[in-house]
Amino acid sequence: MKETNQEPIIHIKDLYKSFGDLDVLRGASLDVFRGENVVVLGRSGTGKSVLIKILVGLLTQDRGTAQVLGKEVATLTEKELRDLRLKIGFSFQNSALYDSMTVRENLEFPLVRNIANLTRGQIDKEVETVLDAVGLLQTINQVPSELSGGQRKRIGIARTLILRPEIMLYDEPTAGLDPITCLEINELINEVKEKYKTTSIIITHDLTCAKVTGDRIAMLLDGSFVRQGSFEEVFDTSEERIKSFFDYNFIQ
């Protein structure tokens, strides 16, 4: 864990969220400090994605605190939320690329809509820079349906990087990918951290991804964080729920 005298840039405290009768988050608390990659690990349906959607204002908590860069997300005005979102990159589980646009247009879209008066040359340079960073410059004129799952993930990450975010939120970055592509995505997450100096929350149930990308692991079970620390610290426990999660994934 980072030094506690440093202010967290993401502060989650006693967060509750329900959908009808289903209690998804039940008092989740987590602090994320600048420059670290925190992996939120847990089984499907434990509220991992809900947690990061609350952080970007796509969902609102029932109660509790969710602060990003010192601002309580749920209370922000439309303009404040827009300004905050410019500082957060969100990589979706299914990439969420705009399927009617080419890769170039996908990347240009957030850029030209958020930064005024860019010249054609500046736009092209930015697009090529982030595409190069994810190693997919050759796909610039392709449409998403022509890309593989791994390429789509990379383009999704490139689209978030184009706005130079301070914080990256990855929702299941390796879900549905083959082991080799998973490793490439894990490497990319680490490269993004180094190159763009981002702070990240990585949502996953993939232990390899957690071990490779996480500076710190936070184990989310039944809607709350039950254990935090290094990969070894988290799994060096006799608690049955954590052991069974580890054993299940190990067998997988």
Partner: peptide, 16 residues
């Protein structure tokens, strides 16, 4: 289709 494939959410989080 854009809603269920999270393309609309992607616009929102890109401050669009």
């Amino acid at each position: 289709s854009m809603r269920v494939t999270e393309q609309i959410d992607a616009m929102e989080v890109s401050a669009i």
